[in-house]
Amino acid sequence: MSTPSGFDELIHPSTRLSVVALLAATEWADFPFIRDSLSLSDSALSKQLHTLEEAGYLEIRKEGGGRKRRTKVRLTSRGRTAFEGHVAALRAIVEGAGPAAAAGPAPEAAGATAPVTQQRQHHAKAGR
């Protein structure tokens, strides 16, 4: 199966996907809110934010100064488009797997039960 259009390798790692999903639900988010919501360390979150910012997916704004300095983050329109495309690609992957699973057991699985059935029949005949 080929990778669907819109699948984004940059967003796909679970931490980045979680960051982008959280930001997709809001206009701006404070750094501590993102950090605490995703149970990340400051350094781990900073690294992920930097990677996403370099790709043009995030805008990071620093406000205030000294101890009152706040970091705010938001998805750019490019980041929102990438996230929506990635979610659509993930849905296509999941839905593509659905019909095969609903059709019943794979031929290998059906074949794996045949010897057991044959053994039971053999034992039943031998016991007569």
Results as ranks from 00 to 15, higher is better:
residue 22 L to D: 05
residue 22 L to A: 10
residue 23 L to D: 00
residue 23 L to C: 04
residue 24 A to I: 00
residue 24 A to T: 08
residue 24 A to S: 12
residue 24 A to N: 01
residue 25 A to V: 08
residue 25 A to I: 02
residue 25 A to K: 10
residue 25 A to T: 13
residue 25 A to H: 10
residue 26 T to D: 12
residue 26 T to H: 07
residue 27 E to A: 10
residue 27 E to K: 04
residue 27 E to Y: 07
residue 28 W to M: 12
residue 28 W to H: 06
residue 28 W to C: 11
residue 28 W to N: 09
residue 29 A to R: 07
residue 29 A to S: 15
residue 29 A to K: 09
residue 29 A to E: 06
residue 30 D to K: 14
residue 30 D to S: 11
residue 30 D to N: 07
residue 30 D to W: 00
residue 33 F to D: 14
residue 33 F to N: 09
residue 33 F to R: 15
residue 34 I to A: 13
residue 34 I to K: 07
residue 34 I to H: 11
residue 34 I to L: 14
residue 34 I to M: 14
residue 35 R to P: 13
residue 35 R to I: 11
residue 35 R to C: 14
residue 35 R to M: 14
residue 35 R to N: 08
residue 36 D to G: 08
residue 36 D to H: 07
residue 36 D to P: 09
residue 37 S to V: 01
residue 37 S to N: 11
residue 37 S to Y: 01
residue 38 L to G: 07
residue 38 L to S: 07
residue 38 L to Q: 07
residue 39 S to H: 12
residue 40 L to E: 01
residue 40 L to W: 05
residue 41 S to H: 03
residue 41 S to A: 02
residue 41 S to N: 10
residue 41 S to Q: 06
residue 42 D to R: 12
residue 42 D to G: 04
residue 42 D to V: 15
residue 43 S to Q: 11
residue 43 S to P: 03
residue 44 A to T: 12
residue 44 A to Y: 08
residue 44 A to P: 04
residue 46 S to G: 13
residue 47 K to W: 02
residue 47 K to Q: 06
residue 47 K to G: 04
residue 48 Q to E: 02
residue 48 Q to Y: 02
residue 48 Q to F: 04
residue 48 Q to A: 00
residue 48 Q to C: 04
residue 48 Q to S: 03
residue 49 L to W: 01
residue 49 L to C: 03
residue 49 L to Q: 00
residue 50 H to F: 02
residue 50 H to C: 09
residue 50 H to R: 13
residue 50 H to I: 00
residue 51 T to V: 11
residue 51 T to C: 10
residue 51 T to D: 15
residue 52 L to V: 05
residue 52 L to G: 05
residue 53 E to H: 03
residue 53 E to P: 02
residue 53 E to I: 00
residue 53 E to R: 10
residue 54 E to H: 08
residue 54 E to F: 00
residue 54 E to S: 09
residue 55 A to W: 11
residue 55 A to M: 11
residue 55 A to V: 15
residue 56 G to D: 04
residue 56 G to P: 07
residue 56 G to L: 03
residue 56 G to N: 02
residue 56 G to Y: 03
residue 56 G to T: 04
residue 57 Y to P: 01
residue 57 Y to A: 06
